[in-house]
Design a protein around this nucleic acid. Structure first.
Length: 489
RNA sequence: GCCCCGGUCGUCUAGCCUGGUCCAGGACGCCACCCUUUCAAGGUGGAGAUCAUGGGAUCGAAGCCCAUCCGGGGUACCA
């Protein structure tokens, strides 16, 4: 099927899935979906030393959480597998051997150890690490003598010494390098594993990848890949280098910038839709005014000409706002369901399990007041708690004293225990009248009641809250406040 | 050092290709006011960008050309 869009996300299992990687996955996925193509996940596990168990599972979980689905790859298979590079070793070996026999690559007999730490020249980056290698110029006899003396699987690519390598990047336009500035990079390592460079080229060709979309940090290795494609006689895919995501200090986003693993956003109570929307805006825009945009609208409109060239700083504040927007768009039932796991995690065990029906009625009261789901327990706790332990001095409002506070409390208690209709409009009507009789401002009277009912100075609207709590709970709480306040006096 | 990419309000960005309608628009954040039983949410308004800098071609530039500066990335038997 020529012309079909096939893009891949190629994570390497070396740690927790990073926001930057996920963003790359997201753009690839959007591009595939926009063009009716295929989105493929391929695991680049060619570095045995850095392999971290569980990281691929975490990555896939992250994608699933964001609703990013893949057409080929781990768990789903596909016609171009295997999708783990560690299971494709013979393919790379064969290609490397072919390059050697064609004269496009050569065995290297230099140091079998990783570059020494004390190589001052390399550390200063004054010179490329491969500068000392003379193996390219070995004669036939010298070569066979060395290969007899020591087995070496290390193979370097023989970069053309002149000429220019160009790429027409879909985001950046023409970029070119003088080949003389490129070194003879390694394509096969001593352990028989390929390096990234060989493996990507081999697999992108074999898997018929049409577009390579990856972060800008890969741009410098593109000419190497292009030369490999050429030497192997493969048609290269199109390239698009995405802007990078930076921390507040403008350096590449990393652990020291705080939450960078996708798992942290799940645990902190962000909604997947919000995170996705926010990440889309890091490098792409629909127009000059749209911020909140559905993933359907994004896929409908996702084109590379609307991707920015410059890197973007990850602004946690805007993400938080975005999350609030999405929380407010939930139905009460959805909100309640989303809060449940957080309540189960954070509420004291004796308040569990939560009454789902009750929670569904509580949810609307918090919807405009919560920005992250991990606030759930703190913001709803008093709905579930039996006894309050707040400081009763907090009951006394500005301009009031202990006596007026106590009579306010008692008057309200009378009203509430006599009420047969706990509808919030009725409660407000009744207590407003009582407050007027007591010659208290709404602020004062309701302030006292708010603390009595919740133990806090800040809460959702008082009467709607009482309605949800119901008569028994409300009366009991106010009564409790009266008793504790009297006792404290 | 060398190679490459980038540079519009603090931040994300629109506009740049197809110069005039841009003394630069939106959003987050910040400030004020309105609403109001607290907190939010919402509404209104405000501060905030000599379009990195300097030249040039043009009647006219954020937009075109050149130079410079700054930022970032790469320079591994890591991806």
């Amino acid at each position: 099927m020529p012309g079909e869009v096939r893009v891949r996300f190629a994570p390497s299992p070396t740690g927790l899935p990073h926001i930057g990687n996920i963003r790359t996955a997201l753009f690839n996925w959007l591009f595939a979906r926009h063009n009716g193509g295929k989105f493929i996940v391929r695991v680049e596990d060619t570095d045995q030393a850095r392999l971290v168990p569980g990281s691929i599972e975490a990555m896939l979980d992250g994608l699933r959480w964001l609703n990013i689905d893949w057409d080929e790859g781990p768990e789903v298979g596909g016609d171009y597998g295997p999708y783990f590079q560690s299971e494709r070793l013979d393919i790379y070996q064969e290609m490397a051997d072919r390059l050697v026999s064609q004269g496009n690559a050569y065995h290297c007999y230099c140091s079998q150890k990783p570059p020494a730490d004390d190589d001052q020249r390399q550390r200063d980056r004054r010179v490329s690490a491969s500068a000392d290698c003379q193996c390219r110029d070995l004669s036939q006899e010298e070569g066979s003598k060395l290969s007899a003396a020591q087995e070496s699987k290390v193979i370097r690519f023989a970069m053309p010494k002149d000429g220019i390598t160009r790429v027409n990047d879909l985001i950046r336009g023409e970029v070119e390098w003088r080949n003389e500035t490129l070194n003879d990079f390694i394509i096969m390592k001593f352990d028989g594993f390929p390096t990234y460079h060989l493996a990507v080229v081999a697999d992108d060709h074999l898997m018929e990848i049409s577009h390579v979309m990856r972060a800008e940090e890969w741009l410098p290795s593109t000419p190497r890949h292009l030369q490999l494609f050429e030497a192997l006689g493969f048609e290269p895919p199109k390239f698009a280098h995405l802007p990078m995501i930076m921390g507040p200090d403008r350096a590449k986003l990393s652990k020291r910038h705080g939450a960078t693993a996708i798992g942290e956003y799940i645990v902190d109570g962000y909604l997947p839709e919000a995170l996705l929307n926010f990440m889309v805006l890091l490098g792409w825009s629909l127009d000059d005014k749209t911020d909140v945009v559905s993933s359907q609208t994004v896929t409908d409109n996702f084109t590379l000409d609307r991707v920015t060239k410059s890197s973007a700083i990850f602004d946690q504040k805007k993400l938080l706002w975005m999350n609030g927007m999405y929380i407010r768009e939930l139905t009460p039932d959805q909100l309640a369901a989303a809060m449940t796991p957080f309540l189960e995690r954070d509420l004291p065990k004796d308040m569990l399990p939560v009454d789902e029906e009750y929670l569904r009625r509580i949810a609307p009261l918090l919807q405009e007041r919560i920005k992250r789901l991990d606030e759930s327990a703190d913001i709803t706790e008093y709905f579930f708690r039996a006894n309050e332990t707040f400081n009763t001095d907090d009951l006394v409002q500005k301009g009031m004293d202990r006596d007026s506070t106590l009579s306010a409390l008692n008057a309200a208690l009378d009203d509430l225990s006599g009420a047969d209709d706990f509808q919030h409009e009725k409660l407000e009507e009744m207590l407003t009248a009582t407050g007027e009789k007591l010659e208290l401002s709404r602020r004062q009277f309701f302030g006292v009641l708010r603390v009595a009912a919740t133990g806090r100075a800040v809460s959702p609207p008082l009467f709607e809250m009482m309605e949800v709590m119901g008569k028994d709970r409300t009366v009991s709480r106010v009564n409790n406040a009266v008793e504790r306040f009297s006792a404290a006096g």
